[in-house]
Design a protein around this nucleic acid. Structure first.
Lengths: 381, 381
DNA sequence: CGGACAAAGTTCGATTCCGAATGAAGTCGG
DNA sequence: CCGACTTCATTCGGAATCGAACTTTGTCCG
């Protein structure tokens, strides 16, 4: 009856590779596992692949997800770029492409465009496999219940737009809509085994933060992880677009650093260039980057004491600047409680630029594999 | 076979009062529920109590936990007081007493003393019922795995002491050891239905914070919720016992306010007296309390943006000072993002002084009702 | 090389669990 | 006051699940 999705999930997550492991991790009897695995193989969702290594007895017959079980189509929308990916149910990216994309064109237009690109991608790299789910990351707060964007400062014309419903109309599969930093956090979570409490910072044009608490994404009321409008100690006073003064974002975001560099006669086109300049040892850049790291670190001290994570992970285009990481480390280690920094890891992204794609795949898989199409598929010949 | 604990839990939590409701909430078939409820009644753990109100059909036969199912003995240790409670498996406190208690006497001596008082309490108010679990709250960080206290600044001689093991030796039942603010958070969580993301502040001699994230207690690596050593913006510089300057605790804790009052010639014995003075309109007290609230609120702004809770709950002896609550509200509502403060509640404790007792009962119940003594008890005549 | 041992997977009888049908108890409207 | 309708709880046959014993396939060691 039920429970087949759970077995698929265990295999997909890499938690089990044999019937015996499935039995151990799922709590089901070995006999039941055998039966259900048989059905899943019949249905073409699982597949046997040789045998594993013996641990003193008979070798396990390794199981893996059948490649034709289906795919997930996911996208990470940025302010000016969109990164699209095709992911299999195991979470492995099959194809990733990047397009320029103007999110300011409005929700409906952008989503229609996105649906078109995703369809192309599936046609090109999907090998005719069925799409089981669609995921969209957006650079703004998301109402987790309705799949709508709420009060997005970077996304004019998107407020309250039913993103999930729009995409569901185009694809007729489960749709995940999530904040981009949250997707990134979910992606990093995969890369930090054993770390079930994470803070994942995205330092690019803006500053975002995704939170993993107790192994699960923490959404709060939908806006959790906003650290860009925390007040910082500054010697001068700068207004932020949010209406308050001295927000972190106004000093330490890529946008702020670009403006500061421009004030010193250095014009660049993208926040990533700042990291490049800093790597080249351009004094103005290293100085700014170090200052930004210091400010971010100061803000983090309070949050680290409060949240007590296993690791603080820093991604986004500015994470390539070593001086920034070093400055964050310095501030946190100096000012936090020893109990909070003991064993605390502060490091740059492990999942890399695909973090959000991987995270979307991971979250979407949990949705898709708990759906009831599995039972139906297993019932058919 | 299994699942009886789950049924008991649903009844104990008040989520189900009839067999039909149990079936709905547990996902089991009505027939299975009937059988198992029968066994639980046989075993004396459940009990029928008249019938409930009809909703258009046959009246449900109301179920409740049998009074003789057992009790939980819990204690909340403070620096100078210990509050002990007897709680039934439904979470209702049957008896609460307070003793003076010097935690500085050392772990073993204090715990032996505590075990004695708990035994007395059970003998006096326990009606001969079996104790199913013991819970202890301590004013310091707790390693959730081992049930040991770690690096407790207020508890000399307790470092690494195996509190859980000590109490288990005395009572031979499951033992819960937890930080006092965490217990308080668990207690408040019961009083804030629908709020699964809570920050619960305890403002007394010190400042602590318990966190409910996604409906569960967030422990982090064991030290989560420490907000007392966040740096605040101050016009002067004060050293804190932690070795840094300008910690929140050094300005806004009951201890700091008492010291400040003493400096103005007002000697009091307990932080609760500050709230009393403030209620009386003593200018020095109201001024200090308002300043403390402002500082706490400033610290909270960052945390509220980050964590995005449903509610911020303020307890502890200083929560009786209305000026403090008002100042916290003012700071948070003024400086936080609208998205974070929209629908955010900032209020004083609903669970009152027994919050920690109730919380300990709640957490302990989950442990006790997942134990296997239930199956054994149901197997016996 | 052969036998003791270990682990993976399967078979099969016994048990548990589900679910539709049934009975029980009660509300509502005419 | 009676019949249609709701909801709660139980009965009972059939299906799913378990678990112990067993087979298969391997390692390890004398």
């Amino acid at each position: 009856m039920s429970g087949k999705g759970e077995l698929l999930r265990l295999v997909a997550l890499g938690h089990a590779e044999s019937r015996a492991e499935l039995a151990r991790h799922s709590g089901l009897a070995p006999s039941s596992v055998s039966l259900r695995v048989e059905e899943l193989i019949e249905a073409g969702l699982l597949q046997e692949e040789g045998s594993g290594l013996s641990t003193g007895g008979r070798r396990p017959r390794r199981l893996k997800l059948a490649p034709n079980a289906g795919l997930l189509a996911v996208a990470d929308l940025g302010s000016h770029h969109a990164r699209l990916g095709l992911v299999d149910l195991a979470g492995t990216p099959l194809a990733v492409v990047e397009h320029p994309c103007d999110i300011g064109a409005g929700a409906a237009a952008t989503l229609d465009w996105l649906a078109g690109r995703l369809t192309e991608l599936v046609a090109a790299g999907g090998a005719g496999l069925p799409v089981r789910g669609v995921g969209v990351g957006v650079p703004g707060p998301v109402d987790p219940a309705g799949g709508t964007v709420i009060s997005p400062s970077r996304m004019p014309g998107w407020n309250e737009y039913p993103v999930a419903a729009h995409m569901a109309r185009r694809f007729d599969v489960p749709v995940l809509v999530e904040n981009d930093a949250n997707l990134m956090a979910a992606g990093e979570h995969l890369a930090w085994p054993g770390c079930d409490n994470l803070m994942v910072l995205k330092v690019g044009t803006g500053i975002g933060c995704g939170i993993i608490a107790g192994g699960r994404l923490h959404r709060g009321r939908g806006a959790a992880g906003d650290i860009s409008h925390v007040r910082v100690r500054a010697d001068r006073s700068v207004m932020c677009s949010c209406g308050h003064s001295d927000c972190l974002e106004a000093y330490a975001s890529g946008a702020a650093l670009m403006a500061a560099l421009a004030g010193q006669g250095i014009e660049i086109g993208h926040p990533a260039d700042i990291a490049a300049l800093a790597a080249d040892g351009v004094p103005q850049a290293t100085n700014l980057v170090r200052g930004a790291g210091r400010l971010i670190g100061d803000v983090l001290t309070a949050l680290v004491n409060f949240f007590n994570p296993d690791a603080v992970v820093i991604g986004g285009s500015l994470s390539a600047a070593e001086q920034l990481i070093a400055a964050v480390r310095g501030a946190v280690y100096e000012r936090c409680l020893p109990l909070a920094t003991r064993d605390l890891k502060i490091d740059v992204t492990r999942a890399g630029p695909n973090a959000a794609i991987l995270g979307a795949g991971s979250l979407l898989r949990d949705i898709v594999l708990s759906g009831d199409w599995i039972e139906e598929a297993a019932a058919r010949p």
